[in-house]
Nucleic acid binder design. Sequence first.
DNA 1: ATATTTGGTTTATAAAATAAACTAGTTTAC
DNA 2: GTAAACTAGTTTATTTTATAAACCAAATAT
Lengths: 97, 97
Amino acid sequence: MFEELDPLLHSQLRLAIMSLLIGVEEADFVFLKEKTNATAGNLSVQIEKLKEAEYIDVEKTFQGKMPRTVCRITPKGVLAFENYVKTIQTYFNTNNK
Amino acid sequence: MFEELDPLLHSQLRLAIMSLLIGVEEADFVFLKEKTNATAGNLSVQIEKLKEAEYIDVEKTFQGKMPRTVCRITPKGVLAFENYVKTIQTYFNTNNK
DNA sequence: ATATTTGGTTTATAAAATAAACTAGTTTAC
DNA sequence: GTAAACTAGTTTATTTTATAAACCAAATAT
């Protein structure tokens, strides 16, 4: 009746990250940090988890002399996100059968 | 941009409990346990948390000689649930401003 | 009578989120 | 040119949360 909610997405920060990434080509660490209001440490950890799960790709480059971490959602990540949304919606239908 | 998700509701089991309670007059421990597939211990703990937050009322009675724990959602609980749903939905709109 | 089941609670353990501390390098101000 | 402050992160430690395992008291079945 209550299908399991993907624990990787059932986290406020990771959900926010995915929510942002699904709407754009790519986004860097600084952008994600600003938009989510997360601390750098927390963001770093959660990005790593999403990467391990292959929900996102992470590319470390240099912007001039400064390091730059760019993230992109993967097809697998899109699927997982869509499935999470679908699943949690079933929790919201009061008369769930 | 990403409003905080009520941590009390951002838990799979507590969300399931609330989802069930919002649709009925009342529900007892056994019913909730069956519907959610939770272990008794976990259910006991999560019911206690929802009760402390006054999201639900808990009434311990006896059904003949057996104990019976009946739960009901409170108005405060209904509001919190509705707000949680509204809030997480904003995460799902990719182009959230 | 003792074994099992019911309806739980309490306590212990594992996992997760978060914060604090640290690294490595850059820019700015003197 | 060097000290101070800032950028872009990572690593480690701490706190919180979720979950599981163990337990309890009473009821029922054997």
